[in-house]
Amino acid sequence: MEELVTEIKKKEARYSFFRQAAKRLWDTRSARIGLFIVAFFVILAIVVPLAFPYDPKVDSNLAMKLKPPSWEHLFGTDQLGRDVLVRVVHGAPISLRVGLTAVAFGLLVGTFLGMIAGFFRGAIDSIIMRLMDIMLAFPATLLAIAIVAMRGPGLNNTMFAIGIVSVPGYARIARSAVLALQEREFVSAARAIGAKPMRVLFRHILPNGISPLVVQATLNLATAVLEAAALGFLGLGAQPPQPEWGAMLSDSYKFLTIGAWWPVLFPGLAIMLTVLGFNLLGDGLRDALDPRMIVKSRYF
């Protein structure tokens, strides 16, 4: 009976923490805007491919090439006569998939490494964190570009590269969270009742240190979408004729000189809005979850 009561109390406490955080998030106007933007692109990415299947390989109509925006083609047409709006909309699932996969990869690997380093200290800690320092000696975008340049272009290598360069960020945050939490009473209590190290680490420490990681992951989604677009623009990410936003920009920017601004403007706006959405949401989450700890981890 007592166990049940404590269980319920525990649930209530957690519920109220997340409910409070959710309320704080919703009460911030900028975070709300971010949430709407992200929700819009997520719905777009899920619904559009199902409702309007699109095959980029057969999409071309040279008679209609480079037509400015009109009622028929709201965003105009590109150099192969393809509707820019259709391609921008179908680019959403690609960008979100790349962002989510890369972030999930970085988050899992980085958190695992950071937690192990912080928990076991000693030689393991030194080796892991020195390795992270070495990776941080490269500007992240440059390292991602170099990795894909070597591995060969394509979406899989893009996701891998963007994910791997984000690992040190998560590792540092996870490590410092573990160091801070390890001294707390609930961890000593768990140890005292004989919990094994891995259980202490993943059942007790991880759930309590997850807030800054969630914030970092959200902000990292913004960076990942930007980096994926940059790689696409350099011809390293998604390959034509896939409607990836960065690749679309790279395909059509040569036509700016003849005045065709629309195939460049709209994919860029889509990138910017998506990134803005994740940034707003991430900033809001940071304020809602844990204002002090995370500001530092983002900038230092």
Binding site: L226, Y253, W261, V264, G268, I271, M272
Partner: peptide, 12 residues
């Protein structure tokens, strides 16, 4: 500013 792809801004 931090949300904008700089290559796109450059082009614009």
């Amino acid at each position: 500013g931090v949300s904008m792809p700089i290559f796109w801004l450059g082009l614009m």
